[in-house]
Amino acid sequence: MTSVELNNVTKKYDKEKVVAVDDVSLSVSKGELFGLIGPDGAGKSSIFRILTTLLLPDGGTATVEGYDVVKDYKTIRGNVGYMPGRFSLYQDLTVEENLSFFATVFGTSIEENYELIKDIYIQIEPFKKRRAGKLSGGMKQKLALSCALIHKPSILFLDEPTTGVDAVSRKEFWEMLKRLKQQGITIMVSTPYMDEATLCDRIALIQSGKILSVDTPSGIVKSYHGKLFAIKSDAMYKLMNDLRAFEHTRSCFAFGEYHHISFKERDKDYTEEVLNYLQAKGHTGVEIKSVTPAIEDCFIDMVEEKKSEA
């Protein structure tokens, strides 16, 4: 069963000068946790707004739960939960007032659907008399999610729910999403954090309005062709410059405590050459190993591939 479907959707701004969404096609199955992964300005929010019927596409068609986003916008509006990019809460209203307001706007009450939000809401309930503006980022995020869930939507659109939230709250948030998924809710979520991609069932990598790839996280990693190496030495910055100057290097970038390096001949193992080269350059404590690429490696690779094509 398909829950969301986009066919060649295009959206332009500024008198057609800026192409925010460029011929995007993808589909999300019922009950799936689907991630749109890409940096700011990649077109993620525009896609969400088209699907929540807030924006009209300039080209292509899209359906949500079988309804057309242009024609059947009224039906869609009542059935989706939406958390826009910024935590869209009334800062001057308390936690409880926010929640009960959104509940009545969607024609329900907190009591009626308390079961659904209980897990999340219980964490902020002790602060229910506090104004939303005075909450920390993590708590705002939980409140916003509660508000989006209060009318028992069959599908949730979460636009960058973890941006600006610390690592701990992010982790908690993804755990909540997993529990919601178990209740059968389809979730479409966007994030600029590549490490969150692995927590989705399937992901679409998106850059400059274009879909780079749609697959399961492991599928994306598998599709990385060639070998990738992690390398470190006692002088990381110098190491980076030296590696970039190395004749066989295709790309080299920092990745945690290592630098990740790929070579022009992608399947060849250059370990020996690299070690010799670095020794000559006076590096000490050099360590090199072959690694499985992460989603972030794949993303960078695809972006660079695109660039070299262009």
Partner: peptide, 10 residues
């Protein structure tokens, strides 16, 4: 605030 988006979707 962005709340208008939610209201419109409701």
């Amino acid at each position: 605030l962005g709340t208008m988006e939610i209201l419109l979707v409701s």
